[in-house]
Computed example of a mutant assay.
Amino acid sequence: MAVSPPRVVVAGSANMDLVGLAARLPLPGETVLGDEFVMTPGGKGANQAIAAVRAGAVCVMLGAIGSDAFGVTIKARLNASGVDTANLRTSYGASGVAVIMVDRAGENSIIVSPGANSSFAGLSAAETSAIAESDVLVCQLEIPVETVLAAAQAARAGGTRVILNAAPARELPPELLAAVDLLVVNEGEARAITGSPEPDVAGLLALVPRVVLTLGGAGSWYADRDGADERIPACAVEVADTTAAGDAFTGALAVAWGEGRDLVDAVRWANAAGAACVRKVGASNALPTRAEIDELYARSN
């Protein structure tokens, strides 16, 4: 008997990514001649929504785009990827834009101008209903934190599990942490939340019941209050661009958890998604399909 795909709702940002590739990243005040330029829809929210669909979910995107040409393109990419945009808002003015520099080792530096993302305030009845009807809510921090809190609390009230990818790094209000079921952070974000000079998983578990600490090329670290504490190695691949790796990971993790996988295995599968993503240049265009994730997962486990 066929199993219904998990329902994931993403409340987050949608940007146009302007990506320049060069031999190395410029130093302050320096100009470096680039190799290539790519313009592609992105933003952590939109990326994670597309990642979830490609990994096998039915996904609803909640957020705001501008009334400019970038907004038209962003929405078209989401629709073409199979993301439900019925509740995606359009705000008069500029869409969010990310200016991304990538070197030949795949490392990047990013500046984000939020644009319409800053206008995503409060939740409508339809948006609240979409959250309550889903298996997993995914949020990040490129939209107002008050909106993230409202979405997380709506999920908690509706029995929907909450994944918070706490990026970009910032301190988080206690009431938001109290509504999070699974926190996904890198080492810098972990330090920002706990105030510790080193990533403090025990300190994070004092705030939320489950934590995934992403470690780049070293893989991931999953821990929870039930005693799980496991380092999960990364899949070995040739790196072209790390820009959307974290979004591929988070989107796939939401799908795996929504499907009922054990969370340690879900993190292994999400590791494969992140690794499959870094093999390509770009953001939303680099996000892997379920077949690509499964192939790398099978080869690496």
Results as ranks from 00 to 15, higher is better:
A11D: 03
G12D: 03
A14Y: 00
L18I: 05
L21C: 13
P28H: 08
G29M: 13
E30S: 09
E30L: 07
V32N: 08
D35T: 15
M39E: 14
G42H: 01
A46I: 15
A51G: 10
A51I: 07
A52W: 01
V58E: 15
V60W: 12
I65A: 11
S67C: 10
A69K: 07
F70R: 03
G71S: 07
T73K: 14
T73A: 15
G82P: 05
L88H: 12
L88W: 05
T90F: 08
Y92P: 11
S95C: 04
G96F: 02
A98M: 05
V99M: 15
M101Y: 10
G106V: 01
N108F: 10
S109A: 15
V112W: 09
S113R: 01
N117Y: 06
S118N: 09
S119G: 06
A121N: 14
V136E: 05
L137D: 05
Q140V: 05
T147F: 09
A154H: 10
A155T: 05
A155C: 12
R156W: 11
A157L: 06
G158Y: 10
P168Q: 14
L177K: 13
G188H: 14
A190V: 07
P197A: 08
P199N: 12
D200H: 13
L204H: 09
L205Y: 11
A206L: 11
A206Q: 15
L207F: 03
P209F: 06
L215T: 09
G217H: 11
Y222F: 14
R225S: 11
E230W: 07
R231A: 10
P233F: 04
T243F: 09
A248R: 08
A256N: 03
E259M: 07
D265M: 03
R268G: 09
A276W: 00
S284L: 03
A286M: 09
A286N: 00
L287M: 12
E292P: 06
Y297F: 13
A298D: 03
